[in-house]
Design a protein around this nucleic acid. Structure first.
Lengths: 160, 160
DNA sequence: TTTCTTGCAAAAAGTTTGCACCACA
DNA sequence: TGTGGTGCAAACTTTTTGCAAGAAA
């Protein structure tokens, strides 16, 4: 069974069907998002686009991202807690993110519990859920140890 | 059984313990957040603050909100999907939000499933979860009906 | 009285937009 | 060829910051 991952072509097809033109810039932005596991902010997409086409503009990147968002080909997430900036990624299978507050690493995870939450909320409030954003923050395995060490220091070195 | 809701005084005590000064402005911002069920963006807090003190500045509101955030007295959420702007609310019992995409209404809900998610992710990835953001979007009960009507229209009015 | 906080205004940071030119379909 | 997309620069929105004056502790 093939992943429910769409190829670039299928996404492009999705755009076409909406009467959108297929410009090199759009192809480029799509390809950038297609070829990474990361969640990129608009500026990063722009910088990567520049590497392949010196003449693209940031405005076009933003416009393209919005077009792709509207087409349901990509999605936008707000990952940070201290910086309000959108991050973009392909609209593939549903997954969620854990951000390490110490090292900034992002861990993706899946969970079937979210489906339960949706059902629960739908039933309790009569709503129809179209989007679920679940985002965890904390310390990753590596940083937990460091934090433990720091906490210990703090313990032994009391007032100031 | 009394709610685990903190009073203004307790929050203020929390600030004091961190060596922060208790200015009228901070009291004001805290009181504004204390006396609403809503999630306010910085500008709304500012506007409400102005009603009681003509001389407060937006900069102070932002600075105060950040101080309160750092003190763990309030928390910041990103609720919108199309407008990236921070919303602030008291750090009380854990709850989550559903935003109606049609009318903008925000419904708060609680769920014990989130605790399960945390445990699941902690176990699977060895991380330590410190914050959980869960945000649903969709249509509220009222808007579901309207949407149904609109969808029906779209069905009967095909190409273009 | 010392240090932290405020107000003001200016600057940042992120995103959108008007307009003339350009290129997909 | 015509409509929609692009680049550029300027505007907009949200948030932060430098600095001198002001006020908690």
């Amino acid at each position: 069974m093939v992943m429910d991952k769409l190829g670039v072509d299928e996404r492009i097809e999705k755009l076409r069907m909406q009467g959108l033109r297929l410009t090199p810039q759009r192809r480029l932005v799509l390809d950038i998002l297609e070829s990474t596991e990361e969640h990129l902010d608009a500026e990063t997409v722009y910088l990567r686009a520049l590497e392949r086409d010196e003449s693209v503009s940031l405005a076009t990147v933003y416009r393209t991202l919005n077009v792709l968002l509207d087409s349901g080909v990509i999605q936008q997430r707000f990952l940070d807690h201290d910086r309000n900036r959108g991050y973009y990624e392909l609209y593939d299978k549903e997954h969620f993110h854990f951000t390490c507050r110490a090292c900034g690493r992002v861990i993706e995870f899946e969970t079937e519990l979210v489906a339960l939450v949706r059902r629960q909320v739908s039933r309790q409030h009569g709503v129809q859920v179209q989007y679920t954003g679940l985002h965890l923050e904390g310390l990753c395995a590596e940083c937990v140890e460091n934090a433990a060490a720091i906490a210990h220091q703090a313990d032994t070195a009391p007032t100031s």
